[in-house]
Simulated scan of single mutants.
Amino acid sequence: MSQAPSIPLYEQLASELVDAVLDGRLEEGSAIPSVRQLAAQQQINPLTVQRALALLADRGIIERRRGQGSTVAQGARQKLLIEQRQQFLEHDWPRIRAQIKRLGLDLHALSSEANGEVDGNTD
Rank of each mutant, 00 (worst) to 15 (best):
S2N: 12
S2E: 14
A4K: 14
I7G: 00
P8S: 05
P8R: 07
P8G: 06
L9G: 01
Y10V: 00
E11Q: 13
E11D: 09
S15M: 13
S15T: 13
V18E: 12
V21F: 11
G24Q: 03
E27P: 04
G29F: 11
A31T: 09
P33T: 05
S34Y: 04
V35L: 03
R36C: 02
Q37C: 08
A39L: 06
Q41W: 13
Q41N: 05
Q42R: 12
Q43A: 14
I44P: 04
N45V: 06
P46L: 04
L56A: 04
D58K: 05
D58T: 00
R59K: 15
I61K: 05
E63F: 06
R65F: 04
G67F: 01
G67V: 03
Q68P: 00
Q68Y: 02
Q68A: 09
G69L: 00
G69R: 00
T71N: 03
A73I: 06
Q74G: 01
Q74F: 14
G75Y: 10
A76Y: 07
A76C: 09
R77Y: 08
R77N: 10
K79Q: 15
L81D: 04
E83W: 15
E83R: 15
Q84P: 00
Q84E: 09
R85V: 11
Q86C: 09
Q86T: 10
Q86E: 09
Q86M: 08
Q87H: 15
F88I: 12
F88L: 11
E90I: 04
H91S: 14
P94E: 11
P94T: 12
R97F: 15
A98R: 13
Q99S: 12
I100W: 02
I100K: 01
R102N: 09
R102K: 14
G104Q: 12
L105P: 13
D106A: 09
D106F: 11
L107R: 07
L107H: 06
A109K: 04
S111F: 10
A114D: 02
N115L: 14
E117Y: 03
E117V: 02
V118K: 02
N121A: 09
N121H: 15
T122S: 07
T122D: 08
D123M: 03
